[in-house]
Design a protein around this nucleic acid. Sequence first.
DNA 1: CGCTGAGTTGAGGCCGTTCAAGACGTGTGG
DNA 2: CCACACGTCTTGAACGGCCTCAACTCAGCG
Lengths: 233, 233
Amino acid sequence: MNDFNESRCENCVVRQLNTLKELSKEELKRISDSKTSMFIKKGEAIFKEGEKLNGVFCIRSGVSKLSKLSDNGKDQILKIATKGEVMGHRSVITEEKTNLSAVALNDMEVCFIPKQHLYDSLNSNISFTKAVLVQMAEDLKFADELVVNMAQKTVKQRIAETLRYLENNFGLDDDGYLKLILTREDIANIVGTAKEACIRTLATFKKEGWIVTDGKRIKIVDEKALYRLIEGL
Amino acid sequence: MNDFNESRCENCVVRQLNTLKELSKEELKRISDSKTSMFIKKGEAIFKEGEKLNGVFCIRSGVSKLSKLSDNGKDQILKIATKGEVMGHRSVITEEKTNLSAVALNDMEVCFIPKQHLYDSLNSNISFTKAVLVQMAEDLKFADELVVNMAQKTVKQRIAETLRYLENNFGLDDDGYLKLILTREDIANIVGTAKEACIRTLATFKKEGWIVTDGKRIKIVDEKALYRLIEGL
DNA sequence: CGCTGAGTTGAGGCCGTTCAAGACGTGTGG
DNA sequence: CCACACGTCTTGAACGGCCTCAACTCAGCG
């Protein structure tokens, strides 16, 4: 008698969103038997730069920032991961320590999958391996674009780009504000600038009538103006 | 009777350096029969951003820069590829147009391998697929570090870092100068700055006694001072 | 009511961009 | 052989973006 249990990987909706969908029912069952489900509170770390990971983390709910400390002590946010994304596979694949830290931006539910299961599937299931490869290739392309943006664009352009990114990836709440709420400091850490510069730039966007703010919330009003800025006039 | 022919992939030394070493003798023979060997002159493009690639390029000799145009018209060098490296696999894997251009920094010999062979091997040879995956994971880690450097470090630090990179990856000539000679503009495009800033920074390095220049050639004299600068004092 | 953390604003200054001009080296054609 | 052009390297000067430090506000919270 099989009782349907949504905490089982076989039945987890999240799985449809990522590379795990290439796994067979049997592989998923094995994983489910050894996975650990965990709750993470806003602000807590899932893992820290330099740790040796013994598996990967699959996000069931919530949002996490992936960041890296630079030599001068500031941290740079490289990616924001959300429901369905798998964190940590890069370092598990190369069998190195992680180069990133993962911190929860709001309360999260995360499944930990021991690395041995990943290795087993990578060694036996070629369509899974290929799916992971394609995922990695896309991440790499994204990273390349990020490098160019960091190197060549102004802080203004990068902040506008970040707002677009937040809108496209996390959507709007009922009032039309960006659903994902970040502190000004987080935004500054995404674009790689000081928090003051970030605040000042948002103030000028507001003055130009491109955005509206309400406490921490931000609403994009004149999307076209922002896009024109991003493209460079 | 097998005549030994070093232009055959089976016998190519370069193969030992990259993911192709995971391929079987049969696979290599198939590839060798359909590959195209080509000579590229300094300054010529191997492929350009936005092109659809029908295969990958394996470098037999010479050095190539991989760069991407930013919206403001400057191009950003993301990687310098040399003997043994395979270019273009990322976009072949995701079946997209390339996001990078490849231009020869000196005279090159390059083998073009049609993508169908790649797909065949990715579908049948899991240790090859895994090797490509690991390679991609390492490229991604490198790209992450690049983002942080671009976002958080000064032009001075990035130029010092570039010098270290050139020394580590391409070595020195008989006089102790960096073997790979780049124009000041290329260096500027690596660190993402204007060529004048690059020149001035190199001038101060020279004044401090950290490097010596001889025309386009650069010799690192005080390595430790450079490294101290990179780490942030 | 003081504490803490986030948001905001001002002033000063450095770093890097931009434009402009000149020096140098190399190759070309007369 | 010289004259010239062209590309690279170099330097100067002015401007402005962004960083840094410092103060102040405001809200939530004990």
